[in-house]
Amino acid sequence: MPTYTMRVFRGDPGGGEFKDYRVETGEGMVVLDVIHRIQATEAPDLACRWNCKAGKCGSCSAEINGKPRLMCMTRMNLFEEGETISVAPIRTFPLIRDLVTDVSYNYEKAKQVPPLRLKPPDPDGKYRMMQEDVDRAQEFHKCIECFLCQDVCHVIRDHEEHKPKFAGPRFFIKIAGLAMHPLDTVDRTKWVGTHAGVGLCNITKCCTEVCPEHIHITDNGIIPMKERMADNVDPVVWLLRKFRGAKGKQPA
C-alpha cells in the first residue's frame, strides 16, 4: 500500500510547527482516515474536529496542500505516491490547537441575520409553495456550515478590520435563501449592504471554488443580492414598482 508523508500542523497560539508523519494508507482512504491513524498510533492528542465522515456535517475543514477542503472528502489517491502532503488548520480563524480553530465568529454572524417572518397561511390554514418556488432557496439550504467559504474569503482572511461589519459568503447565501423564500415578508436588501457588508465582496469567487456542496454561492447568492440592492437605486425599477403598485416587503 502507498506510503505518504503527512506534514501536519501541531501547536497552539503560542507557537507551533509542521511535523512529519509517515503513514501507510489503505484502499479508498481519505485524509481524515490518515489523521485518525496518526492519532491511534503516534499522536493520540492530535487535535482535529470531525463527526460524520461523509461530507454532511462540515466539521473536518482544513487546508490540505494549502487548499481549503473537507478532510473526509479528500481521497488519498488524489496525491502522488510518496508525496508530502501538508495539513493545516483553517487559518482565517483563531487557533485553539493543532487543526482545531475557534469558529465562533460564524455563530455570532448567524445570530444577526434577521429571521424569517411568514405571510399568513391560505384560508384553509395551509401554506402552499410550488417546487419551482423553493428550488432556488433549497440550493442554499444544502449548506453544511463547514465554513470553508468563510475561511477562503479574502475579506475575512486578509482584511480583518472588516470583520465587525462583514458577514461572509455563508451568510450571504443564508440571506439570499430568506430573500427568495416564497412566503417571507422581510426586505433584507438594504440590510445586506449596511449590516452584512456585501459591498466588500469583490466577487472573486473563491467561496464558490471551495464549496464542498457545490453551491453556486456567487452566481446564485451574492450577485442576485447585489442586483436586488441595485434595484433600490434603479429609477426604472422604481417607476415600474410605482406603476404596478407592487406590495413591498417590510425592511429588516
Binding site: 501547536g11 497560539p13 487548499k67 465562533s104
Partner: peptide, 21 residues
C-alpha cells in the same frame, strides 16, 4: 448567549503567505 465557547486570540502561527503547491 453562546457561552463557554473558549475564544482563542490569535491565528495559527504560520508565516507563509500560502501553502499551495
Amino acid at each position: 448567549d453562546q457561552r463557554g465557547h473558549v475564544r482563542a486570540a490569535a491565528r495559527p502561527p504560520i508565516a507563509a503567505a500560502h501553502l499551495r503547491k
